[in-house]
Design a protein around this nucleic acid. Structure first.
Lengths: 235, 235
DNA sequence: GCATATTTGTCCGTATGTATA
DNA sequence: CTATACATACGGACAAATATG
């Protein structure tokens, strides 16, 4: 736990300190800088970021509420270690939200802005794949599906999806080999993109359902396989 | 703002102080004890509950994250005043979640426990209606629909619904006449209950969709009518 | 428009309780 | 079982922003 947090101190300028600290820690957790199971000590992080314990605790409480950290009374805060049940539930909600979002698509209702953002996410995925940046590829894939959910046009769905996908990134950090997982889904996302652009709602829903079922199955598999390893390392 | 919070001090016994304080304040807000737009001063509430400002601020941050309070920098925290856009979005998500939850219902998949809990919520609504307890009727109706969402069998959907319905209660507190709004929906909830018990998924979905459309229309109407009154009172 | 009082945002010191070596 | 380390919670302090006269 000898990380270098001093470089983030320059970012503390606007907004409330607790929110800034929460942003920094959220980024660190989602990057895998703080891996699942790691304990975040108040003293070390507080002094590293140059904020008081009170402020830091406010930030911890925020991230705990977002599901990224867990707080054990009088023991401290830890990066959450998602369980297999979490994976199953995350995909249950993804299917519900994403499939519903694309169901109503018709050639008339397709918005140009949405297509553009979906295409941009795909382009980032391509670029990351070319650079063999597998973490970046996973992020781009996630962004693509956040844009799919955004087709519902609801700020609350957007927020829900943001939190769901943050949890999912936690799941990815538990996995061993990110490449083999993320790579095949790039082509399938492109397929989804074409279906959406063509305005084929039912077709998109079918393909998306199969996509999510496959991804879930593969994740659950990888999880049960590598289970013992990280359960031990986290305790 | 001369409220009596001392009676809640007896409840502070287990869990972290901040969580306990958040529970108390959440209850007060949802009861309408702290109406939308009211400012919650750190000094007054802190001394009334007998907790330090730091602890109280942690509780505030929790409730802010839940969407019940809003924090304006250097101005304080206020009970959130939902807008018409909020109402529309809340119902957009309700339709998405609740309709999807009942769509797959068949006579074979109906769970006895779920039927029981739905019936219990209906009974509470009946009892509240008989007592002319309109706030209680609204709560029971809300519980009924939380059970509908629970048919999806997802902890995350349950949590989402809980937060959505908490926001909705905030909306109700802005309305003028709760009776005329809640009463007619009791009969319609009973109708939904019978459809679910019969295992008629598509029929339930249709009726539920119409239910939510009507409720949304009526709320938006009431909101635009009484708009000027509380916008002024909240500023 | 200005000066004052109030309130928030933040930090620090310290005491107490809990878990772990 | 004792001792140590740490989280929890409190109270006080100060600067900054806001509200009030």
């Amino acid at each position: 736990m000898n990380h270098d947090l001093e470089s983030d101190r320059a970012l503390l300028d606007r907004l409330s300190r607790a929110d800034q600290v929460a942003d920094i820690l959220r980024t660190r957790v989602l990057q895998g800088y703080f891996p699942p199971g790691e304990r975040l000590a108040e003293g070390a992080i507080g002094s590293a970021l140059g904020v008081s314990r009170n402020t830091l605790r406010e930030a911890f409480r925020l991230l705990t509420h977002e599901g990224l950290l867990v707080q054990e009374l009088n023991r401290g805060v830890f990066v959450r270690v998602p369980t297999v049940d979490d994976v199953v539930d995350i995909y249950r909600v993804r299917k519900l939200v994403e499939c519903q979002a694309v169901r109503g698509i018709t050639p008339e209702t397709v918005m140009l802005g949405a297509i553009e953002r979906l295409g941009a996410a795909l382009a980032r995925a391509d670029s990351a794949s070319a650079d063999e940046d597998w973490l970046g590829l996973g992020t781009a894939n996630i962004d693509f599906h956040a844009e799919i959910a955004a087709l519902a046009g609801s700020p609350r769905i957007d927020a829900l999806m943001q939190r769901l996908l943050a949890e999912l990134r936690l799941v990815f950090h538990v996995m061993a080999d990110p490449r083999r997982f993320h790579e095949p889904y790039l082509a399938r996302n492109r397929e989804l993109f074409e279906l959406i652009r063509a305005g084929d709602g039912p077709g998109t829903e079918r393909a998306l359902g199969a996509y999510l079922d496959d991804a879930e199955r593969q994740l659950v598999q990888a999880y049960t396989d590598g289970r013992r390893a990280w359960v031990v390392s986290a305790s």
